[in-house]
Amino acid sequence: MNLNNQQSFARTFLKQIMLTGLTALTASMAFAVPSDRNEPVSLVADRATFNEKTGITTYTGNVIIEQGTMKLQANSIVANLNSNKEISVITATGSPARFQQKTDQAKGLAKGQAQKIVYNAETGILTLVGNALLQQDGASIQGNSLRYSMNKGDIEATGTPNSTGSSAGRVKIVIPPSSKKSFPGARD
């Protein structure tokens, strides 16, 4: 390969890596505070690969993507592109993979973690699998898997059936007391 071809390949490769990183981040920013979108994107990893034939970009080795209040940390992140070179699915794996983001100026950081976090950009579904946990402002939901629809705003939590009555492996929801009411329907 001559020097011009090598330089062209390197520019194309770097362009694809950056495009995929930015697109991945944009996809995860669907419910972020507006100011995050104006912040620079930082992506660090030990290794990055792009396969133009398959449309798969892989980041491995303590991957950290940040933009504003959004932070995604994982052992590896794999982004699959569709035929239009747009992100279709992003998969982050770790022990655990973690993310945080401010979704509303009036609320604290929303934080989540699981062994695997999958975002399907085409359906708007975020799935956390393997000891999944979502937390914000003292409220939390955890289970074996959590499935969140960004389009509909609903969440489905799945635990492991447990006939002993203990909480091990089951869905657990914590709702902090309100400053005005101690439980739904309570009077001031």
Rank of each mutant, 00 (worst) to 15 (best):
K85M: 08
A186S: 13
T103E: 14
K181V: 14
T91E: 11
D154R: 00
F9V: 09
K85D: 09
D137F: 11
V174T: 14
Y119M: 07
V33D: 08
A106M: 13
S178Y: 07
A157P: 10
A45K: 05
L72K: 03
L146W: 03
T158V: 15
S166P: 04
Q6A: 06
R170F: 06
G55C: 06
K172Y: 07
K107R: 15
Q6S: 11
Q73T: 11
T127K: 11
D36Q: 09
T93P: 02
Q7L: 07
N75F: 00
L133R: 15
Q101M: 09
L72R: 01
E156G: 05
D188Q: 11
Y59I: 01
F13G: 06
D46W: 05
D137V: 08
A24C: 04
T58K: 15
D137A: 15
T26C: 06
N80D: 12
K15D: 14
P34Q: 01
E66M: 10
K53F: 06
G21Q: 08
D46I: 03
T23R: 11
Q135C: 03
A48D: 09
I117S: 06
N120A: 12
I141R: 15
Q142D: 05
Q105H: 06
T123G: 10
K111P: 06
A114C: 05
G112Y: 00
I141H: 13
Q73Y: 05
K180I: 03
Y59Q: 02
A139W: 01
A139K: 14
R98M: 05
S178R: 12
D46P: 01
I17R: 11
S149D: 10
G130I: 07
I175D: 09
P177A: 14
A10I: 13
N4T: 13
N151F: 04
G124I: 04
A139T: 00
T123M: 05
D188I: 12
A186G: 07
G159W: 11
S42M: 05
M29K: 13
A121L: 08
